[in-house]
């Protein structure tokens, strides 16, 4: 187990060094406030994409409605914070908890009927759900005036600092990693590979599909809750199906079944978008979407398995499992 301990120490060191580097960059003014926001945004996308990565990349359940859960998290958490109005840290944490629980509840209720559907049909059903949520958010002010409806919601206390985003990102990565390397995670992967074979060995796929769906959506809800406390203006159009495409692109382009791929691509993707804005300047702003689309097409043509395939690096890589005979009979670690 020496290797694993080494890896653990290395990863903790890696996280601390990364944090220290960013902090130094902020304090020395190398990272100006604008790029700090971009960094925050990229980490929020990491959390949300991890959710879809679990649902789609690992358990193979095609969802094009992920942004709807992101939006539900943002609005529910934002609403709680706005109602409490104090902007204190306990209120913020309570709001995040509400974001996650509310999103998980909705995911459970919608997952119960739709998770029976297969592949593309599931995708279309979730896409439809996304459109419905968007319409609901557009008209939410008729029930709850604070939610603003189609004019957008303002007034959520902006309490999120880089530390919070960073903390929740690391937490989300650790939880996702541990989930995947648990029995539950292995069952999810086996459902992706072959659902019938999974049920043939006495596992109820419906239960595990539901579990991973609720968990993944709760992560999207958490990302949404943080988003609401990080950006002063929430609008339903930020959570429509084009946003769902963004999550889908991140997961597939990063490599289906690779947490590393999802994390790296989510950060890279946000920085690419902002980087293009920066690099092109005012005169070529119109070209941003075109260049982005061309890069996307070239990426999938050149690397059909996504950036990382199904590879993992560092502690995210699965450990060899000890078989019944103990350490002696364990499969050699690759």
């Amino acid at each position: 187990m020496g290797r694993n301990n080494n890896q653990l120490i290395k990863s903790i060191a890696g996280v601390i060094i990364f944090y220290a580097l960013i902090k130094t960059a902020i304090l020395t003014g190398f990272l100006n406030p604008y790029w700090q926001r971009v960094l925050d945004q990229s980490l929020i996308y990491v959390i949300g994409s991890l959710g879809l990565s679990l649902i789609f990349g690992f358990a193979g359940q095609f969802s094009i409605g992920h942004a709807a859960f992101f939006g539900l998290g943002a609005y529910s958490g934002g609403l709680v914070s706005k109602m409490l109005g104090t902007g204190s840290i306990p209120a913020f944490l309570l709001a995040l908890l509400v974001s996650m629980l509310f999103t998980a509840l909705v995911a459970y209720l919608i997952g119960k009927p739709v998770l029976r559907l297969q592949s593309d049909y599931l995708g279309i059903a979730t896409l439809g759900f996304g459109v419905i949520v968007k319409v609901a958010l557009d008209n939410a002010n008729k029930l709850i005036p604070e939610m603003g409806g189609a004019t957008g919601m303002t007034g959520v206390p902006q309490v999120v600092t880089f530390e919070w985003v960073f903390f929740f990102t690391v937490l989300a990565i650790i939880i996702s990693r541990n989930f995947l390397h648990s029995t539950y995670g292995r069952v999810c992967t086996s459902i992706r590979e072959d659902e019938i074979a999974t049920s043939a060995v006495g596992i109820n796929p419906a239960k595990y599909k539901m579990l991973v769906f609720v968990f993944g959506c709760a992560l999207a809800g958490l990302a949404g809750g943080i988003y609401a406390h990080c950006y002063p203006f929430l609008h339903p159009s930020s959570f429509d199906f084009l946003q769902s495409f963004n999550f889908l692109i991140i997961v597939v382009a990063g490599g289906m079944g690779s947490l590393t791929g999802t994390v790296v691509t989510a950060v890279g993707w946000v920085f690419l978008q902002e980087g293009l804005r920066f690099a092109l300047g005012e005169a070529f702003m119109d070209w941003r979407g075109v260049i982005y689309a061309v890069l996307l097409i070239i990426l999938v043509l050149v690397r059909q398995q996504g950036l990382f395939g199904n590879k993992e690096i560092g502690v995210l890589a699965p450990r060899a499992v000890l078989t019944k005979g103990g350490k002696k009979n364990a499969a050699p670690e690759s």
């Binding site: 095609f62 495409f245 889908l248 692109i249 597939v252 382009a253 289906m256 689309a293 061309v294 996307l296 097409i297 999938v300 043509l301 059909q304 398995q305 996504g306």
Partner: peptide
Amino acid sequence: MIALISAIGV
């Protein structure tokens, strides 16, 4: 799914 992403790109 890769072809799907390509379609979204187009």
